[in-house]
Design a protein around this nucleic acid. Structure first.
Lengths: 222, 222
DNA sequence: ACAAAAAGTGAATGATTTTTCATTATTGTT
DNA sequence: AACAATAATGAAAAATCATTCACTTTTTGT
């Protein structure tokens, strides 16, 4: 996990670095806000720990700035200021958490983990049984290897998983997967289902897509 | 925003409800952990506030239980216990935040907002100037309309935006966008850059992709 | 068991995308 | 200015993907 520490107090910075290094996390240290912004613009971190009080640009300014530039890296502000209005200000400007000094390293670690977990889980992956869809790279993995799906097959599988356990009408599938508001005169859905079925069956040996005569499809759970 | 409050102290629960109601947020109150689990299983909330100490099932047990069942609702634990080991335990069990009593309502609200913002933003948008990439649907929008990109063009633009302001070598572009660890013998990168340039220029009239002779490309910021 | 409706199949078509290639243009160096 | 290296371009070829079609199989209600 790549961690950025923006902290002008060398002692604190080094103590944090040492602790993180013990857990095998590479750390980058910025001595002031300007440097922090520079690092954040060039490298992708898993989390940024920003001291409120820093030379040149304060931690809260760094936070505001990177959020405005669209950077969504999880941010935790570290500070001696324990007043509520400061906390509120920081959180409203896009920080994810706020810890007042002195803090315990264990608590910091736990808060980092909570935020990173949330950050990661809220993003990319859709998991069904032992199949994992990466919604960003659009790749599908199972313990038996990667399943190569075409674009439409991926969209369809995603739709199936999101609605697993319920009967999905062809009308709705059409609307959601093909963005068509009318039922096509061809059997395009059936054809795509066929190909998806084949690939899923090649992977797991099971047929996960059940046809409900006259109603639609059911993606079976369990 | 639908909020679940699990709190056996009626006074606290009602005070919270009143405050949230003033902001127009519907609140549901569970008097104990069992009820909280029941509500969480039947209704979808934007955030769950759980008291640690509750009859029947403690807040932390509720948290553990719902996480095990796959529920990803943001959870904040409210408690009088301020010891670090309690905080760490809670955060490691899947809570998103931890607030010790007594707390200010403003801080609670700010923390809720930070967590919900993070939960919802789910990082599926990449914004550069007035161009927005939806990383899930893989569509690109600008104030002037949608920009239709092919798969590779989208991947390349995403890579450019993520590394805007830095010079990107063809070697790295190759590795990241084409998943090839060797430099291709053809001019496939240049060809794709050309097509992407065309589409971006058709949209904004500007050439955002600068060639750095002998080094690579630069996606201009400013 | 039968007919009608619905769903499945394999192969062919059409469309789009990706890649290649030959050629032209640009840049940096001497 | 001349040269070599690098980059841009348009068009063509190759590959992939989405869709259609004719036909077969399965399911349901009678």
């Amino acid at each position: 996990m790549y961690i950025l520490i923006a902290e002008d107090d060398e002692q604190i910075a080094n103590s944090l670095r040492k602790n993180f290094a013990e857990d095998g996390n590479p750390v980058m240290i910025a001595k002031d806000g300007e440097e922090a912004i520079h690092f954040l613009n060039s490298i992708s971190f898993d989390v940024a720990l920003l001291d409120w009080r820093m030379p040149k640009v304060s931690g809260i300014e760094v936070c505001r700035y990177i959020r405005e530039s669209g950077n969504k890296v999880p941010v935790i502000l570290l500070t001696a200021l324990s007043q509520v209005k400061n906390k509120v200000e920081a959180l409203n400007l896009g920080a994810d958490d706020y810890i007042t000094k002195p803090f315990s390293f264990d608590e910091l670690t736990a808060r980092i983990n909570a935020i990173v977990r949330r950050y990661q889980s809220s993003t990319n992956e859709l998991i069904f049984n032992d199949i994992t869809l990466d919604l960003i790279s659009r790749r599908v993995k199972s313990p038996r290897g990667e399943i190569y799906l075409s674009g439409k097959e991926f969209d369809l599988l995603k739709y199936f998983i999101l609605h697993k356990g319920t009967i999905m009408s062809k009308e709705n599938i059409c609307k959601e997967v093909w963005s068509m508001n009318f039922i096509p005169s061809t059997n395009i859905i059936e054809a795509t289902v066929k190909n998806l079925r084949k690939k899923l069956e090649d992977d797991s040996g099971k047929n996960l897509i059940k046809s409900i005569y006259g109603e639609g499809y059911l993606f079976i759970t369990e």
